Structure formats: structure tokens, C-alpha cells
Simulated assay, not measured.
Amino acid sequence: MNEASFNLVGSHDTPRLLTRCGGDRRLARLAVLFQFTFVGVPCVYYGDEVGLDGGYDPGCRKCMEWDEARQDREQLAFYRALIRLRLSHRALRTGGFRFLQAEPGSSTLAYERYDERERFVILINRGGRQAGFRLPAAGTEWTDALSGEAVAAAGGNLVCSLPPYGYKVLRSKRV
């Protein structure tokens, strides 16, 4: 049931995602990252992928912005990268899910998606200050799934620092 549930961060009945994030594109990206790496089916309300804003009805139902010069093309590229990532890795669609770090009141979140072939660790810092993570990591070969950059695990731990509103999607093949 969870795998088939729609994951919405906005709809025709709510203010648009960007508006709910106070116009902060960084916060909107973190919400979208969670949406695309969480269990269930990400359902994108038209226009969110190009930065459409709007409050409660009728603002949330305004017309799609078709003029590419007025679209947030960087936001669209982010959505496309997450779509490619999710489609390319079964663990992000149907794999297991487990929270690794989630404390009430904390600005950081860490969780994993996994299957028999690979493991993903998703790190999110929604705070305005740099944040550190130290998490147990089976295996030593990790890569940033979005940038391709290698990330070292030392002493059985992943140790990462994220800038304000930063994120990482780390991937390791199962051994």
C-alpha cells in the first residue's frame, strides 16, 4: 500500500510549494528531494517543477507558465535529475526504508533506501547553519548519486558536513 501511495507536496487545494516555503527555493528543493526519495509515488502538481507560486485558491490554480524565459529552469533541471535518479535505481522505488537520524526539533534528517543490490543514504540539512553527520556505513565505496563525486567512509562511518539548506544522496553497491 505504501509503495502505491501518492506523495503530494502541493495540489489545487493548497498553496503552491514555493509559496509554502516562503519563496525559498532551497527549502522547496529539500521538500522535493524528500518526495522523490521517500516510499510511494511522487506526484508533482503542474508548475511546481518550474517554480510557479501562488497562495490559496485561486492562486494555487493559476495557469501554467509556458514562457521558458519566465520559468525557473534550474528548478526544472533539479526535478529532471531526481526523476532520472529514481527511474535508474529500483531501491528508490521499491526498496526498504529506514530513518537513520530524525530528532524532534532538529534541522537535520538522514534516512536510507535499500534493496539487495544497493543502498542509498539521504542527508538533509534544512537549517541556516552548517550541519555534520556521522552515520554507520557498511562498505567503504560511496558516491554522491547526483554529482558522481566519491565520498569516503572511514572506520565504518560516513562523516559528512552539509552547508545550510544542503543535501546529499549517497549510494553504495551492496557487497
Rank of each mutant, 00 (worst) to 15 (best):
L82D: 10
F38R: 04
E68L: 12
R129N: 06
Q75V: 03
G10N: 10
G59R: 01
Y165M: 09
W142T: 02
A91L: 03
R84C: 09
F34Y: 12
Y114T: 04
F38C: 11
V39I: 15
A137V: 06
V39R: 14
G155E: 06
D67K: 12
D67M: 10
A150L: 02
S106Q: 09
G40N: 09
S107I: 01
S106Y: 04
F78I: 05
E116K: 11
A145T: 05
L162W: 03
L8V: 04
P42N: 10
G166K: 05
F97G: 02
A153M: 06
T108L: 00
C21P: 05
R119V: 04
C160P: 00
R119I: 00
R86K: 12
L100M: 14
A102R: 10
W66K: 12
D24G: 09
G55A: 14
M64N: 04
W66G: 12
E49W: 04
L76T: 07
S147I: 01
A4Y: 10
L87Y: 10
T94F: 11
E74C: 00
R117D: 11
V9P: 04
E118S: 09
Y114I: 00
A110F: 03
C21S: 08
S11W: 13
V175H: 05
R20H: 07
D115V: 06
H12D: 13
F133Q: 02
P104M: 00
N7H: 05
A153L: 06
V175W: 06
E112S: 12
R90V: 09
S88M: 02
V44C: 11
R80L: 15
P164F: 09
R29S: 07
G59W: 11
A77S: 11
R86N: 09
E116H: 08
L100S: 02
R61N: 11
F120H: 05
M64W: 14
P136F: 04
T140R: 14
T37H: 07
V121N: 05
F6A: 09
D144F: 07
F34S: 15
T37C: 13
G105S: 02
W66R: 10
E68R: 12
C63E: 15
Y111H: 08
Q101E: 15
E74Q: 14
N7L: 15
P136W: 03
V32S: 02
C21W: 06
G156L: 03
A110S: 08
N7V: 12
Q71H: 02
C160Y: 02
G155V: 11
G23L: 01
L52Q: 12
G54T: 05
L30K: 05
D67P: 09
S161N: 08
F78V: 04
L85D: 01
P163M: 05
E103I: 04
E68A: 14
L146N: 00
M1T: 07
N125Y: 03
R113L: 03
R171K: 15
F120T: 04
G127N: 06
Y46E: 04
L170N: 00
S11A: 13
V9T: 13
F34K: 13
L27I: 04
A4H: 13
K62R: 15
K173N: 06
S106D: 15
D67A: 15
S172T: 10
P58Y: 10
G95Q: 03
T108H: 00
R29C: 13
A69P: 06
E141Q: 07
Y167N: 08
P164W: 10
G51H: 09
